[in-house]
Amino acid sequence: MANAESVVFRKSYHIEGGNFQSAGSVSKKIKQILKQLNIDGEIIWRAMIVAYEAEMNVVLYASEAEVILEISPKKICMIFKDKGPGIPDIPLAMTEGYSTATREMRERGFGAGLGLPNIKKTADNFDIQSTVGSGTQLIIDINIF
């Protein structure tokens, strides 16, 4: 999370779990903000990988989530705080290829077990906290400089 004084832009969004029709819409709103702020295309490209993966995780597994976007001169910070089943074994969930996706999700091309590893690889800083039966929080930073 950025220092409160240095945040130049802050906005929150809501994601509805299970809604495939609107999946990606929060990522798209974030992209529009980043474009308006004239942030470099390569940084937006990386921000979209993590935003979409995190958004899809909510759509696929959680009931809902709040997303907080904070932009400071040095970084883009995205916090995804969901209400959902939580992750019992985070190191296992971070393993490439591991997934608890249903058959229906897999048929849609999800559940390859790449989402969280992709976020970790792409982000400059990544933190994941989860409470089983309550939900999961991701804090993802993409450095601007």
Partner: peptide
């Protein structure tokens, strides 16, 4: 989709047999 979102670059042409609405979000983002 996770592979495609991570691996594609701007102005790439994407070939797939996925037909559901989430492919549009990936292409757009």
């Amino acid at each position: 989709l996770s592979d495609v979102i991570a691996s594609t670059r701007k102005n790439d042409l994407w070939i797939t047999i996925q037909t559901h609405e989430n492919i549009i979000a990936v292409a757009s983002l």
